[in-house]
């Protein structure tokens, strides 16, 4: 048996889909018995969603006022304390998990396995290195707790037909007040979430301006797609950082991906290699994006994209 504790990612109301992908990874460990930990000010609603995930045995709800925001320095000591008796402690390889989990690993005195893409054994995993240019098999010490982050693009969310028990856990440990949340700024949008959307349309530097990015938004809306961008487009200020797809942005795996005016730098390709079908539209027929695209069209995006948008029913 392998006792696995997964930290749930949420915004106080809704469970983030990354959690269901972590559960899918954990379920690949032989004899996995999976518990979820929900740290919140009032985690009732999130715990209900967590309890519905398949494979989950128990949901441990830790309600404290200090958990209103997901600050790594505040959650890490609580998660480390809760980890006692577990063989594995996992979190998603999102900015939430990347921030939190190494802090937990250090408190537990172990190194972390970052970006788990497959489970090879209870202590053996595969993970990408060198921006995805190599995959390494790693073996964690058998006599120590395994702390890891899960590369969410490598897993499909588990179903929600479960009915785990929800238990409230009292946590009275002193928590630091040296880190304080000020604000979060987010380009609110009604479009599908980039990280979980089945379809994504991304634009690159060739768009040339913020205004021209409207072409991408219109096509995306016609397709019911999320919108992403290359690093070059974000660096140029056309769109905000949360839209960046790639090694240093979001790593995604939609069923259908449009790369428009994106040359296909390696760091961008790393973010989309698990996509189902990749469509590339670029005026440069030599662009590296065409080497990985399932369907490629050479031409002027300013002519093609509006026409394509109109042509889609």
């Amino acid at each position: 048996m392998a006792r696995i504790l997964i930290v749930a990612e949420h915004d106080g109301e809704n469970l983030n889909p990354s959690t269901a992908k972590c559960v899918a990874c954990a379920a690949d460990v032989d004899g996995a018995e999976i518990d979820l930990a929900v740290f919140a000010a009032n985690g009732g609603a999130v715990a209900v969603q967590a309890a519905a995930l398949d494979h989950v045995a128990r949901v441990l709800k830790v309600d404290r006022a200090e958990n209103e925001q997901a600050l790594a320095a505040v959650i890490a000591p609580q998660l480390a304390a809760l980890a006692d008796g577990y063989d594995h402690v996992l979190g998603p390889s999102t900015t939430f998990g990347k921030d939190l989990m190494p802090r937990v690993a250090a408190l537990l005195g172990v190194n972390q396995i970052s970006d788990i893409m497959s489970v090879e054994g209870s202590h053996s995993f595969k993970r990408p290195v060198y921006a995805g240019n190599a995959v390494v098999t790693v073996e964690a010490p058998a006599d120590r707790v395994v702390v890891g982050t899960v590369r969410t693009a490598s897993y499909r969310a588990v179903a929600t037909a479960g009915s785990a028990a929800v238990e409230s856990v009292d946590q009275s440990a002193d928590l630091p007040d040296h880190t304080r949340f000020i604000e979060i700024r987010s380009g609110q949008s009604d479009r599908p979430d980039l990280q979980t959307a089945a379809r994504v349309v991304s634009g690159g530097r060739a768009l040339g301006s913020s205004e021209n990015f409207e072409l991408i938004f219109k096509l995306a809306d016609k397709l019911g797609a999320g919108v992403g961008a290359s690093r070059a487009a974000v660096d140029a200020g056309y769109v905000p950082n949360e839209m960046q797809v790639g090694q240093t942005g979001k790593i995604i795996a939609p069923e259908l991906y449009f790369a428009i005016g994106i040359s296909g730098a390696i760091q961008h390709l790393t973010g989309i290699k698990d996509a189902g079908t990749i469509v590339a539209i670029n005026k440069d027929e030599e662009a590296p994006i065409f080497e990985v695209a399932d369907v490629g069209l050479v031409g002027d995006l300013f002519a093609i994209v509006p026409e394509l948008t109109d042509a889609i029913a």
Partner: peptide, 16 residues
């Protein structure tokens, strides 16, 4: 005061 690039946008925190 540090502004952080996070999945949902930009988060600002204050640290001692």
């Amino acid at each position: 005061r540090v502004t952080r690039e996070v999945d949902v946008g930009l988060e600002t925190i204050e640290v001692d």
